[in-house]
Design a protein around this nucleic acid. Structure first.
Lengths: 234, 234
DNA sequence: GCATCACTTAATGCATACATAAATGCATCC
DNA sequence: GGATGCATTTATGTATGCATTAAGTGATGC
């Protein structure tokens, strides 16, 4: 059991208007996404409360939300445990993302995108290109995340965007951890560029196919990596 | 503002081991799904607590969960408001269900189903057939729901099943309310039967296409109905 | 050394109290 | 009649206390 040493974190002034439970939720989630609370490790309500400088009540509310999102499990007397992501879980997650983002791509191409939206997508592609040229994988991954988020938003389905974000967050640590273990994502960015073109050309079938294949390939590689390296605590 | 008159509901013995917050969640959700708390109406924490015979603490936890599921919104000093489902929201919901269930159908056909699983699907189809012959629409809708749930479970993706359930629940009242406004779902059940055959034949593409078209048609009809009848509070 | 039992500790679930601030009601003015 | 200001009421967000019981620890017996 990995117990985090209490470090009291007081709210800054600008945060003071945000309810404590929301602050707790955001902070705990960030700690999980950043792998600062390791997968498989546990944190008691009282520990989190001490660390965040508040009472147990808002902390508990934050933990319930995180449990609802599939990021953690809550067990009486054991606190909040960050759920590790197994290869099988990763495959599940990416199956869902493939279906939903494929639908988003199709929707975006059907609805069409205005010049600003297309420019933003293209800008993300360009930035990925630059990041690859500069061997800056972190920058690449940030632009990649932005691209995917923008794509989903283009579908104009608020529920979809929310679900995709939650599901994607579950795999975040796995992506981060394997970032330097993967081959340089050159063909990945070719897919991105082709997808932008399909959206511009208003070709829903093509957009969907490109993106589903793209997502499937990425998933296969990621799942295989996690399996091959025996990574268990992601 | 529609205020529900407090009726105290004490837990039965078999429920006593279920935490109060879980009981509150289930009860409130059922009230929403059954349209006993009307869309658009509000219920204060204290009202719900009085009605459920517990303190505000577990009630609040239940409400936070329901908010996370997109069933309600919580506003300080206004309590929990059941979110109405507009035609646009319905379209969003069904787009998501179409993508996810289409993926489930493809997955089920790819993995294959054992004889028990196939029999269960076929049994649901048969029961829908009987219900149609007996003009028992409620029975039909229950068998229909069962069919869809079983289909999604066949994909063997636990996260998928959970997401589909949540998204589907958001549209539950709309389905219930329009049940008798829709034409008799004869062709719907033909789709179901064809899907079972595609799964049995292990034809993923066909399964996916059948089911996506089925879902799309159902969505179009439902959305049009809600629009045409000017139904706002679903 | 291992299993069992009794006792103690402590983490959660929940109830209650308190502080804050939004909503409401009322009086006054134009 | 409508707008404004002020006082009062009240619903939430949170802190704290209490009851329950699971988990941990130590002693004992085989």
């Amino acid at each position: 059991m990995n117990r985090t040493k209490p470090v009291v974190e007081s709210p800054s002034e600008e945060e003071a208007r945000v309810p404590a439970s929301e602050r707790a939720y955001r902070r705990l989630k960030q700690l999980i996404l950043d792998n600062e609370i390791a997968a498989g490790s546990q944190m008691l309500e009282l520990e989190a409360a001490a660390r965040l400088g508040m009472s147990r009540t808002p902390v508990r509310e934050a933990m319930v939300r995180l449990e609802q999102e599939g990021m953690v499990e809550l067990r009486p007397r054991h606190g909040m445990r960050v759920l590790p992501i197994s290869p099988d879980a990763l495959a599940e997650i990416y199956d869902i993302l493939t279906a939903l983002e494929g639908m988003a791509a199709e929707s975006a191409a059907r609805k069409g995108a205005n010049p600003d939206q297309l420019a933003a997508l293209q800008q993300a592609v360009d930035e990925m290109e630059e990041a690859l040229a500069a061997d800056d994988l972190l920058r690449w991954s940030q632009a990649d995340a932005r691209f995917h988020r923008q794509l989903v938003e283009l579908a104009g389905n608020r529920r979809l965007a929310s679900i995709v974000e939650q599901v994607s967050d579950q795999a975040h640590r796995a992506r981060l951890t394997t970032l330097r273990l993967r081959p340089k994502p050159v063909s990945s960015n070719r897919d991105h560029a082709a997808l932008v073109a399909a959206i511009r050309d208003r070709d829903p079938q093509k957009a969907r196919e490109i993106h589903e294949q793209h997502r499937r390939r990425a998933a296969e590689m990621l799942v295989a990596l996690v399996r091959d390296f025996g990574l268990k605590q992601l």
